[in-house]
Structure formats: C-alpha cells, structure tokens
C-alpha cells in the first residue's frame, strides 16, 4: 500500500498551517505503518484536543478523538479491552504534559503497551499561541509577552523517571530517524514515548522570531546531536536525539490477564 492509502483523503487538504511540523509527523507515522506491514484494522489512533490531535481524523485506522489531555486514559481502556490492537496516541506538548500530565505519568508507571507520540511545538497553537510546559524560560508567547518564566519539562527524563520502557526523541528534520524510532516504539512491548520536536511557524515561530518552517527545521538540525555524541560535551545546550531507554518490564495488560486468571481460580 502507498502512504496515501492510509489517509482519509476526503479531509484533504488538511487544516494545519503551511509548514506545520505535525504534517511531517503524520507523514512519517503512515510511512512507519506501511513499512511494518500492518493493515488498517490492526491499528488504533487515540488523540485528545489540539492541533496535533487532529491527526486522528486524517488516518484511516480505528480512531478515537477524545477529551483534552485524556487520550491516554481512553487508550488505556481500549488497550485493556482489545489488547491485540496496536494503540498509538499522538499528543501535543500541552495535551500530554499539562492537561494530561497525570495520565502520562501513570501510563508510564503501569507500562501499558501504548505508543505515545509527544508532538512538541512548544505552544498551544490551536488556541492562539499560549505558553506550554515545554516552551521553556525566556520564550515569548501570547500569554508571556515579556518572556516566559516557567522552566520546561525534559520529556525524555520525565518519561524515563515515571517508568516508560521505551523513550526516544527526534525532530521533523530527521525524518528517516523518525520513521525508524516510531517503528521500534510501535513494536515495543510496554509504554513507549517518542518526543518529536515539531515546528509551529505560525505561533511559536512568529512570537520567537524563529523564521519560517524551513528555518525552524534547520534549527532542529543545528541544535540537536545524536545521543552520547562528543558534540554534547563541547556544547551542553545541544538537545540529544535518539533512543534513551529500551528495557523490558512486565506489561500491564498481561499482568491484568494474570489477575483475571487468578480470580477465576482455574474455572
């Protein structure tokens, strides 16, 4: 199948702005599914609210477009009921780590077999460019015209500390790495988190004088480095990309099945 065969073409052209990184994430996600050879019926995409979450409307899989921040809660219910589905949860940075921060922590703690994609554009684009928990100190936003004083989360360290068993980061510039990482994340047994630095030229870019979508992607290239590289020692400001955590721990659905078996006492 071609990538386009996985789209609901009737909704195209999509609503995202020119140059929006979320389109690149959608593109890479479909490419990954195609490479892994899944049929449409084997995948469920569950999203919350925000620009990023519009992704569930565009893919021709099983889809749920749910409440702001609660995508992981819905996905948990779905996965427990239908453990054979590959459940993918694309979220924005605010959706995942502010409104849905608690769900994020507990999904990681439980190690339930979901793939969380944090499409990090460092802003709330849909509502007009408010600062998010990933905007970082000193950035400008509609709600921080004199500079943001809130430090940002490090998604990778947060996910790892909460117990996610696969944690990775890449950018929309590094599409080949993105496809590779998404593939590994979807196939991983347990809670996997993939943070993708994604450009919002309309709000974050404009407020922070970061230039066009192309300029912002060039910055992703210049401001990141492969995990464990020597460049990071020379320039600690560089953001590392690659796979940070890859480990095995009992998966939640399997553990729950075991409880059911015990409760039934072999009946």
């Amino acid at each position: 199948m071609a990538v386009r065969d996985y789209l609901r073409e009737r909704f195209f052209p999509h609503i995202w702005c020119p140059g929006c990184g979320h389109g690149v994430v959608l593109n890479s996600l479909l490419r990954t599914v195609e490479e892994l050879g899944f049929t449409k019926n084997q995948i469920a995409v569950v999203s919350g609210i925000g620009c990023s979450s519009r992704i569930s409307g565009y893919v021709d899989f099983h889809t749920l477009h749910t409440l702001h921040g609660r995508a992981l809660a819905f996905a948990t219910g779905l996965k427990l009921q239908k453990p054979d589905l590959r459940v993918i949860v694309p979220m924005g940075d605010g959706d995942a780590l502010a409104i849905g921060g608690n769900h994020f922590l507990h999904a990681a703690r439980r190690n339930i077999d979901l793939t969380a994609i944090v499409m990090n554009n460092r802003t709330y684009g849909m509502t007009g460019g408010q600062y998010s928990p990933l905007s970082g100190v000193g950035t400008a936003a509609t709600t921080a015209p004199y500079g943001n004083i809130d430090p940002g989360f490090d998604t990778v360290r947060l996910a790892a500390a909460a117990g996610a068993t696969f944690v990775a980061r890449t950018t929309t510039y590094h599409v080949q790495q993105l496809v590779k990482i998404l593939g590994e994340a979807i196939q991983h047994q347990g809670f996997s988190v993939v943070e993708v630095l994604s450009q919002c030229p309309t709000y974050f870019g404009r407020k922070n004088k970061a230039g066009s979508a192309v300029d912002m992607m060039r910055q992703f290239k210049d401001q990141t480095t492969p995990v464990g590289s020597e460049a990071k020692q020379g320039n600690p400001a560089l953001i590392e990309r690659g796979v940070f955590v890859r480990e095995q721990r009992p998966e939640y659905c399997a553990a729950y099945d075991e409880v059911v078996r015990r409760a039934q006492g072999g009946r």
Binding site: F12, G19, G21, N27, T172, Q176, V179
Partner: peptide, 13 residues
C-alpha cells in the same frame, strides 16, 4: 524521496 518524506501536506509522491 526526502521531499516526499518531509512534505507536511502529504502532497508529494
């Protein structure tokens, strides 16, 4: 195929 892969509008094949 980098144009196809990076196209945010999924417009290139």
């Amino acid at each position: 195929k980098l144009c196809e892969m990076r196209c945010p509008d999924l417009a290139i094949q």
